[in-house]
Amino acid sequence: MSIVLSHVNHIYDEDTAMAHPALIDVNIDIQDGEFIGLIGHTGSGKSTLIQHMNGLIEPTSGHIFFDGKDIGEQGFNKKTLRANVGLVFQYPEHQLFESDCFKDVCFGPRNLGLPQKEVELRAFEALSQVGFDPNYFYQSPFDLSGGQKRRVAIAGVLAMKPRVLILDEPTAGLDPKGREDILGLISSLHKEMKITVILVSHSMEDVADYVDRIIVMNKGRVAFDAPPKEVFSHYKELEEIGLAAPQVTYCMQDLATAGFDVDTSVTTLQEAKEEILKALSKC
């Protein structure tokens, strides 16, 4: 399984006076089992990019290959693509509509034309995978807390058994506890189900602890595409495009400037702590 974007361009309102490019010559290669953080601020093109990956938006030029097949080709089955590349949008309120959570999760698999038994089995499985309390299965999704709604929304996509899961800012509007819970859940889905995950966020700190590759978008272009350590080492360029490395990266830079012998490429709290302890013991 792989998604390959080759020279993808997207221009909104092409052929009108208001034409503006949203994606410019994007080349990305996503392999099986990766955990990717897609970062960029509002208007950087990241939302447009992920909608290309499941065929909701078509490129103005360039090609997208899923499993080696061009998804823009005549007769390519979009339904299968969307079941394989699951996309969870930012606000669960945009997709929840049924009278109870279980029925809502059934919506995706039912659209795939599966037999009723299989649909229910998958819905049950998906709700369990996201750690949703069985007592709430038959409750209205509208009465749930923000974090729980998001779980149901994620289950609604997982029930289609996608091989790639794309989540658009899954932590927006949640409090710190809710954020931590959802990120923990996504990380465990990646580990246990061996599913490819693309996590879209504007917070470096959110993704730094989890992902093994970061793609930074800026003004429709891919600015960086590398492991976290390497991306954060460009913290000055990141600042120029309105993004910031995690606070610990800056701490380590400051410490190095102050003459401490520390590795400035650390990205997580744990690593930073060990580095500082090591440096102090040398004193």
Binding site: Q51, R82, Y91, H94, N111
Partner: peptide, 16 residues
Amino acid sequence: EETDKIMKAQMARCAD
């Protein structure tokens, strides 16, 4: 705009 987003969210779940 919201209608557009909702449609896309449902299309991502293979709604037709």
